[in-house]
């Protein structure tokens, strides 16, 4: 595979042709914050938290392929504040009750809040009326917590390739649902995978609750991204 050399925040790095900025950066020990991105899934450019400047233009680093000589700006104050603003938007757009959520401590939205030192959102809470649906067979979907990243849509499919999860509606009313017929046929492993791929606590496998004690959860001690950052 041919090598591509480009620059992130003045540091010259090398990636492989076909890689996106996020992927190449990770391999080079540079963390670009992401939320909708998930290793192995087709990137979708949804959350926009990975926005970087490429030659001065704002681009989603998760969907933009690297190219020779590209100049990328990542950890600059202007972008950091806007990324933080997006995290804040996600917090006010849903109903994120961290103390009651099974995902707390392992939640990527929360972890981004911690990483950005977010004390309280700059935007007013919208308190939308959203549904919690526990009538499924294998899982529960709490749309209060959903950040619409579509990891479930992209990553969890039936054996024949049909989508088990899909987005409904549009605008701020858009919401995730599962296909009842296909959901009921999910294996336990697939249901667990759906829960684990969800960055927040919107998809919970039934009969599983708080599993890891406070202090030992994923983001209790060190910020998200510190496993990548060199």
């Amino acid at each position: 595979m041919s090598k591509i050399t480009f620059e992130i925040d003045g540091k010259e790095i090398t990636g492989k042709a076909g890689q996106t900025i996020v992927e190449a950066a990770r391999e080079n020990g540079i963390y670009i914050p992401v939320l909708c991105w998930y290793e192995g899934l087709k990137p979708a450019g949804i959350c926009r938290i990975c926005t970087v400047k490429v030659g001065g233009r704002n681009m989603a680093a998760c969907t933009t392929p690297i190219s020779e000589g590209m100049i990328v700006e990542n950890a600059i104050p202007e972008l950091e504040d806007m990324r933080k603003a997006l995290v804040e938007m996600l917090f006010v757009e849903g109903n994120h009750m961290c103390p009651t959520c099974e995902k707390s401590g392992n939640c990527e939205l929360q972890a981004l809040g911690y990483r950005f030192g977010l004390l309280a959102p700059r935007f007013p809470y919208l308190f939308p009326k959203r549904a919690m649906d526990a009538t499924y067979t294998k899982i529960m979907i709490d749309t209060n917590r959903c950040v619409q990243c579509r990891r479930c849509v992209r990553g969890i499919t039936a054996k024949d390739g049909r989508h088990i999860f899909a987005m409904q509606d549009r605008t701020g009313h858009s919401t995730i649902v599962a296909d009842r017929e296909l959901e009921a046929k999910m294996s336990d492993d697939l249901a667990k995978k759906a829960m684990e791929q969800c960055p927040v606590g919107a998809i919970i496998k039934k009969e599983i609750g708080f599993a890891v004690p406070i202090g030992k959860r994923k983001y209790d001690k060190a910020p998200i991204g510190s496993e990548i950052q060199k």
């Binding site: 109903n95 009750m97 103390p99 009651t100 308190f127 939308p128």
Partner: peptide, 10 residues
């Protein structure tokens, strides 16, 4: 943000 009591907001 209202916290647990605000779970009634919907």
């Amino acid at each position: 943000m209202g916290g647990l009591p605000a779970m009634r907001n919907g």
